[in-house]
Design a protein around this nucleic acid. Sequence first.
DNA 1: GACGCGTGGCT
DNA 2: TAGCCAAGCGT
Length: 383
Amino acid sequence: MRAHARAERLNDFEELPVVPVDADFKDRGLEAVGFRRKLMNWYRSHARELPWRGISDPYRTWVSEVMLQQTRVAAVIEHYENFLRRFPTIVALALASEAEVLAVWSGLGYYRRARMLHKAAQFIVRERGGVLPGTAAELRTLPGIGEYTSAAIASIAFGESIAVVDGNVERVLLRLTGRAEMATAAGRAFVQTQAAALVPRKKVDERGNAAGDHNQAMMELGATICLPRAPLCLHCPVYSMCRTRGEHVTPPRAVQKSRPAAYLLSLRKRGTVTEVLLERRADDASLMAGMYELPPLPQDAIQGREPLLRVRHAITNTNYYVQVFAASGPQDRGLRRAVPAAKDDLEWVRTNRLGMVPLTGLARKVLQRLDVMEVRPVRLPET
DNA sequence: GACGCGTGGCT
DNA sequence: TAGCCAAGCGT
């Protein structure tokens, strides 16, 4: 599929400015000094202000990098501050239960990340006196920290001169070097070499953390300018060095599927407290194991009934069209009996405790939307 | 090396 | 409405 970025983004212009390509870097590689200068000048005036920028606590950098794996910045911002208020240090995280950690992570997705972050914190406290390792090689051995995250933490938090290659950097470098379609093993190896050649060698420059800032600038360029579908080439600081300039194909996306889903909302009063019926997902479930959700209802149980709420919920490539049915009155006993779950998997939970329960994102969304749960779910320890 | 793992705002 | 998108990791 052709990228139409050029035409779409040039409404007010006759054509792109004609700028000669700096050098024949398709074979020789990008000219590093000039590239870095252009990139960093742009980054210093255009970098987004994000809560994890300009901090000096490696633990916070670690948390932010794990949260950012495959996750939008906006979603991370919503959880980052909350998480760090609840678990301000590695020790605090290590001492928490896994359920507490998952409860704060609820809604961020990829819950394995939270479990591995928790396990790594416990390992660090047990084996390393609570101190995060300071090199990429050591970080790489921790659960949940792979090639990308180890390089990101090492360069951003500790100034190590090591190249970071994420999806953004890969896209930027393939396009810059005229290999935009080379999404192969050879292409990735080429990108790694290019990225390594561009990282500043000096640990610290007159502006601060040379390698960490460079890496963040590369990613920022991919995230805000060199976009996957429609790159904003007119705003690109290294346009003059680019071989493709928006003229390249973009890979097709996976097709989306739609599926119906139905859940039961069952509330009961116990004196002054309200309780909601939740179902705990199996520990061996492939998706969201051990987390809590509203009890699912079979489709044939909801025929002819009006839902209390309709929401859409997207999981990977499937859009779930979700209906929630209330069973608060005695007339709805039939609906409650239609829940196929085993009794052991069902649990009445006080609504004022929902913030401490590891809910699935969908359960959290539904309970908040129906005012069963506060929007601010995290309860701080009594201060 | 391929696959499975979540999410929700935007259009 | 339904499709698109976005800072990886482990097996």
